[in-house]
Design a protein around this nucleic acid. Sequence first.
DNA 1: AGAATTTATGTAGGCGCCTACCATTCTGGC
DNA 2: GCCAGAATGGTAGGCGCCTACATAAATTCT
Lengths: 163, 163
Amino acid sequence: MDYTSRMGGKALGARLRRLSETIDRDATRAYATAGTRFEQRWFGTLNQLAINGPMTVSELAAALRITHVSVSQARQSLEKNGLIASQDDDADARRRYLALTGAGTRLIRRLQPLWRAMEAAALEVNAEADDAIAALDRLDEALARRSLFDRIMQRLGNEETNS
Amino acid sequence: MDYTSRMGGKALGARLRRLSETIDRDATRAYATAGTRFEQRWFGTLNQLAINGPMTVSELAAALRITHVSVSQARQSLEKNGLIASQDDDADARRRYLALTGAGTRLIRRLQPLWRAMEAAALEVNAEADDAIAALDRLDEALARRSLFDRIMQRLGNEETNS
DNA sequence: AGAATTTATGTAGGCGCCTACCATTCTGGC
DNA sequence: GCCAGAATGGTAGGCGCCTACATAAATTCT
């Protein structure tokens, strides 16, 4: 039991952060070992485009539950690497449709075995942890019902409720 | 059920990252609302120094399970804000002992109510999530037994075992 | 039609943490 | 006593994501 676990709730954020970093790092290492240049942040966008076909920045942000800013940055990186291409929408000049290029499609195909291995490894760990993913679901739900901020403020007797 | 949960293990890292960011953000907002300038990364160091008295950078890193680099950066920020002071060790010139200043001690005292509220809020969420913290413990343990990287590599038939 | 608002996307800069690398100081074997 | 290697701390630069703000285009209101 290390520091963050002994701290109970107080270091929950730090705890989650560290865990996510450990996992990200291992994934990055796996990509490197597999000899493929791949950035973590590409995954969501690439995966969505493979599933749904061309999508706009905002659609991707909504689907991935990240900000459009992050999608925009991922887009730049993906385009620079020739994995996707953007195309203006004739009907609405604000929109920018992103689509996989041939190279993008090939990369996804090449990564299939690795992604399957990652998925299997993650599920194995999850099983050993007695379905930690379900616990994360419950955490998400609890926070969606009422944010941590609101809960903190209530306890301080400080009903600003600006959220 | 959003994207990351539907993805099962494949987006586990992203999932944890998002959750930790949500919590960090709410905590930051709570500090701001409480009218106190406070950076998340100060917490671990400040807390350890309050508990144990003066400690070196490496000792803090080990206790907090982060790199000495992060501690070193937190130190600079804490010193710049007058909350801690460093002092050279006469016996070993490499060592740098960090200790709370009066301002640091006062800040901690002033933050006690907020920290208690945060702790209580976190425990409430944790209870609603049916002890998600325990699930995180199990996740840590599973990954300590065998890293995600090793599990992935094994599945790829690629026994590099460079870890 | 023109103004106000909303929507779509982008840039700048920040967060907390990391790896890679560097300098200095201490220590243990010879 | 000296020198290789370990220990301690630091800097540079990066990661993936964010908020705050900016711009342009579409839509709504009157």
